[in-house]
């Protein structure tokens, strides 16, 4: 194997640091493994500069707006959830209220219907009763009329029979009955007739 420093130089491997040179010297002296460390102060300074600049630039142009945006979104989401919760509560209350109202209305309606039914029932009964009464009355009236007519007829018949009987009897007895006697007789016979019939 070639000496390490020659291999490195010929391949263009950077080895221009004291550390590497010293390590190379040690390696050459001992014949041991090659150094893996490649410490260079200028690389360190360059990367320090790049890193610090990147931190500053990103903080200004990226992280601040990103973190703010995320927080804005988070608070927005939290607000939305709160609003939704409030709206939900409100809706629930309203719903309960409406349900109550509907229930009340329903109760009222059914009460109305029941009342109406009752009224109708009552009216029906009343009408029926009235009709019954009316019928009864008319019948009674008819009966009374019939009775009166019958009585009239009977009385007329009796009168006539009495008249004829009196006149017959008068003719038989030869004695003229006075008008008063006549009347008295009629009434007596009518009474008897009425009692017997």
């Amino acid at each position: 194997m070639l000496p390490l420093y020659r291999v490195c130089h010929e391949r263009g491997v950077l080895m221009n640091t004291d550390l590497l040179v010293e390590l190379n010297a040690m390696v050459l002296a001992s014949g041991e493994a090659a150094p893996a460390l490649q410490f260079r102060v200028d690389t360190l300074l360059f990367s320090l500069l790049i890193f610090v600049l990147l931190i500053l630039l990103l903080r200004k142009f990226a992280w601040t707006p990103i973190i703010e945006g995320l927080e804005k979104r988070e608070s927005g989401i939290a607000n939305n959830i709160n609003d939704a919760q409030t709206a939900n509560d409100k809706a629930k209350a309203l719903l309960a209220q409406y349900e109550q109202q509907i229930q009340a209305a329903r109760d009222e309606a059914s009460a109305l219907v029941a009342e109406a039914k009752q009224d109708a029932q009552r009216a029906r009964e009343k009408i029926l009763a009235e009709a019954g009464d009316e019928a009864q009355r008319q019948r009674d009236k008819a009966v009374a009329e019939i009775k009166a007519a019958k009585d009239e007829a009977v009385r007329e018949l009796a009168e006539r029979s009495v008249d004829s009987a009196v006149s017959l009897a008068g003719s038989l007895v030869g004695k003229e009955l006075t008008t008063d006697d006549h009347q008295q007789l009629i009434e007596q016979s009518l009474e008897r007739f009425a009692q017997s019939s």
Binding site: D42, T43, L54, F61
Partner: peptide, 28 residues
């Protein structure tokens, strides 16, 4: 020793830094 030699890794770091920067500015 401090020669400020731009090496491969310095170039790559610059590329990485630019990439990260533009990516997150876009995201921002």
């Amino acid at each position: 020793r401090v020669t400020f030699q731009p090496t491969k890794f310095i170039v790559l770091m610059l590329i990485a830094a630019a990439f990260v920067f533009f990516l997150f500015v876009w995201l921002a």
